[in-house]
């Protein structure tokens, strides 16, 4: 599968220290819009592979990272480059909104 999982433990290594930009999807199983966003992110992950990595972070099992970035609503998708946040998308508004975010770095 193309979609990668990141945890509180692996966040620094996989996201902050990543050589390429990373889009992190903060989600949970009980959030219906998050489930709808899933296939769209999978598609983007395929489409932009080698340019942007896309990771999923379950807020249930990994409360710390969301707390650090002030995530209080899901889905929230944050774009990181060189360890810094470049932008975020709150809620699921279709593929276009994610692409707009991704276009900030490619």
């Amino acid at each position: 599968m193309s979609s990668n999982v990141v945890t509180d433990q692996s966040f620094e290594q996989s996201v902050l220290k990543s050589r390429i930009p990373v889009l992190v999807d903060f989600w949970a199983v009980w959030c219906a819009p998050c489930r709808l966003a899933e296939p769209v992110l999978e598609e983007l992950s395929e489409q932009y592979k080698d340019k942007v990595s896309i990771f999923k972070l379950s807020v249930d099992e990994n409360p710390r990272t969301g707390e650090v970035y002030g995530v209080m609503s899901i889905p929230t998708t944050i774009l990181f480059k060189d360890g810094k946040e470049l932008g975020r998308q709150v809620g699921f508004s279709g593929k276009g909104a994610f692409e707009e975010l991704i276009k900030k770095v490619i």
């Binding site: 009980w30 959030c31 219906a32 819009p33 998050c34 807020v59 209080m72 609503s73 899901i74």
Partner: peptide, 17 residues
């Protein structure tokens, strides 16, 4: 502040509170 404390979906976001 949407997504930073402002929400329209309690079933999605209640656990953050």
């Amino acid at each position: 502040l949407i997504g930073r404390g402002v929400s329209s979906c309690a079933p999605c976001d209640a656990p953050f509170f």
